[in-house]
Computed example of a mutant assay.
Amino acid sequence: MLKVGDKLPEFEGINQDGKTITSSKLAGKKLVVFFYPQANTPTCTVEACNLSDNYAKLKKAGFQLLGVSGDTVKKQKNFHSKFAFPYDLIADENHHIIDQFGVWQEKKTFGKTYMGIVRTTFIFDEKGICTRVIEKVTSKTAAEQILEG
């Protein structure tokens, strides 16, 4: 998994509107990249809405946000439209970005072991250096976790 001190990986992804987002275009500002398992699921919705509800505070603190999951562009579009998120969601169906950040890992739920996206938030400074990794994201207070750093 990407760690504190690592550089923002070079990546390219498709957002909810079918537009290409590149990591190089995100440089120069503080960046929050949050990974979530699946669009429109209860916990992911709570997290994404918490970030949306606190977007003004995050923006005032200088952050830009980018959400990433392995969903299709259509699913991301539906999720984005349903909640009117003020930030982009990347559809990383091929797991290029997910693999670069190292968030595709073994998970256990109710005794079952499977591979999936581990809910993780990465924070980068203006120079594209990772300053924090939040591995234990609390969906209801995701924005506070980012701001308290």
Rank of each mutant, 00 (worst) to 15 (best):
G18R: 09
V118R: 04
A48I: 00
H80M: 04
D92I: 13
E12R: 14
S24V: 12
I134V: 05
T109A: 15
Q64R: 09
T22H: 10
V68E: 04
L26T: 11
I97Y: 07
K75S: 13
F83G: 07
G116L: 12
S24K: 15
K3M: 06
P86T: 11
F79Y: 09
E126L: 10
D53W: 02
S69F: 08
L51Y: 01
G5A: 06
V137E: 00
L2G: 11
V103H: 01
T45A: 01
K107L: 11
T43Y: 06
S69G: 08
A143P: 06
Y55E: 01
F34W: 11
H96F: 13
K74A: 06
T141I: 07
E144Q: 12
G13I: 15
I134Y: 02
G18T: 14
P9T: 14
K136T: 07
M1N: 10
F34G: 03
L65S: 08
A84D: 14
V4S: 03
V32H: 03
K30N: 08
C130Q: 05
S139A: 15
K3G: 11
F63G: 00
E135L: 11
V133R: 10
L31V: 07
Q76N: 12
K7I: 01
F124D: 07
Q38T: 07
A56R: 04
K30E: 04
I98V: 12
T43M: 07
W104G: 12
F79C: 08
C130T: 07
F79H: 05
G67V: 12
G70T: 06
C44F: 01
R132K: 09
R119T: 00
A142C: 06
D125Y: 14
V4M: 05
V118C: 06
E144F: 12
G149V: 15
V103C: 04
E144D: 10
G62L: 11
S52T: 03
S139C: 14
P42A: 13
K7P: 00
N78D: 08
I129C: 05
G28D: 05
K108A: 15
V46S: 05
I98L: 07
V46C: 04
Q145H: 04
Q105H: 11
T109D: 10
M1D: 12
G5D: 02
G62H: 09
I123S: 00
S24M: 08
V133G: 00
V33I: 13
I90H: 06
V137K: 03
K82I: 02
K77L: 07
N54P: 01
Y36V: 10
E93P: 15
F85N: 05
Q16W: 00
L2D: 13
L65P: 06
C49Q: 10
F11T: 03
I146T: 01
Q38V: 07
M115K: 15
K127I: 00
L58F: 00
K19R: 13
F63H: 02
G116Y: 09
T141M: 00
I123G: 01
K74T: 06
Q38E: 15
T141Q: 03
S81N: 13
F35W: 11
K19D: 14
K57M: 02
N40Q: 14
R132L: 04
E12K: 14
C130R: 07
T121E: 01
T109M: 15
Y114L: 13
E135M: 10
N15F: 06
T20Q: 12
R119H: 03
R119W: 01
